[in-house]
């Protein structure tokens, strides 16, 4: 455990000093600011637009952070050969995978946390500058605690994506691993459509293939509750718990695969 903690702290520090966070986080902050500006053009809808675009910005920023860091922490280190000196130390390969994953999750927590604080700050500013009459027209308060549920599920989804990135990084180049992870993310959000494709195209090879794929790919759509939160739909705690448990199972499967592959891989 001591080794994993040390590796996690090192991975987090490495990520924090990398350029990825310095580019993506300000970009997302700008996006949230832009959401407030565009909200000014739509009377009465600015809170919804800020929430919608703010959560989307947090999810996208987190996605690119998870992919770039997740791939770079393993495939990048293998490609640069900086992993050689590390693996010659008294560490087991599965500890390296777990330690790097833990550091990456820590970076994602900070990432989503910072963006959530910025989002709440912008929403508080909107609430403070609007008239009481305008505020009465909102479906939900600007500083809505339900946003935390959406942020939390975004984080769980990013944990799945990070685990997938690490898994792909154990056996492919950084570019290929990044492409596969992004592909998985997109396909994961259309998982439900794959299951119902047969109703549109009719039975056949395409439909069977799509159904088969829907069982293999993780279903990422349930992690996105932005629409529910923005439009004051309930997100029950039971739903959050079940979705989180599903996410943890996905992440554990990817991590298990990553540890298995990396433990047996020749580092040429």
């Amino acid at each position: 455990m001591r080794v994993i903690t040390q590796l996690a702290w090192h991975a987090f520090r490495d990520a924090a000093r990398g350029r990825v966070l310095y580019v993506l986080v300000p970009f997302a902050v700008l996006l949230i600011g832009a959401a407030w500006l565009s909200g000014q053009l739509t009377a009465g809808q600015e809170v919804k637009i800020v929430k919608d675009l703010g959560l989307t910005a947090a999810a996208l920023c987190g996605l690119f952070t998870a992919v770039v860091l997740g791939v770079g922490l393993l495939a990048g280190e293998v490609e640069r050969r900086s992993v050689y000196t590390l693996l010659a130390k008294p560490v087991r390969r599965h500890e390296v995978v777990l330690g790097k994953y833990a550091g990456l999750v820590l970076a994602l927590v900070v990432n989503v946390g910072v963006l959530a604080i910025v989002l709440y700050g912008v929403l508080a500013f909107v609430a403070a500058t609007e008239s009481a009459e305008a505020r009465r027209g909102w479906e939900t308060p600007a500083v809505d605690p339900a946003l935390l549920k959406a942020c939390f599920l975004i984080l769980v989804q990013l944990m799945v994506v990070a685990a997938a990135a690490l898994f792909f990084a154990t056996f492919s180049s950084p570019a290929l691993a990044a492409a596969m992870t992004l592909g998985l993310y997109v396909a994961g959000h259309f998982n439900a459509d794959l299951q119902t494709l047969e109703e549109i195209v009719g039975p056949g090879l395409t439909a069977s293939l799509a159904t088969g794929l829907s069982f293999v790919l993780p279903n990422l759509a349930p992690f996105n509750v932005t629409a529910e939160v923005v439009h004051a739909q309930p997100v029950p705690p039971g739903y959050v718990a079940l979705t989180t448990a599903t996410g943890l199972v996905y992440a554990a499967l990817f991590l298990g695969g990553a540890m298995l592959v990396f433990s047996r891989r020749d580092l040429t």
Binding site: V3, T85, A88, K89
Partner: peptide, 29 residues
Amino acid sequence: RRRVGFLPEAPAFGDNLSAEELLIHYGRL
């Protein structure tokens, strides 16, 4: 491995750390 030291050919390290930080990190491992 606790009793072995290894220098690979043309060693590479994470770019974001200093030599001192890298050695302390390895020492902690």
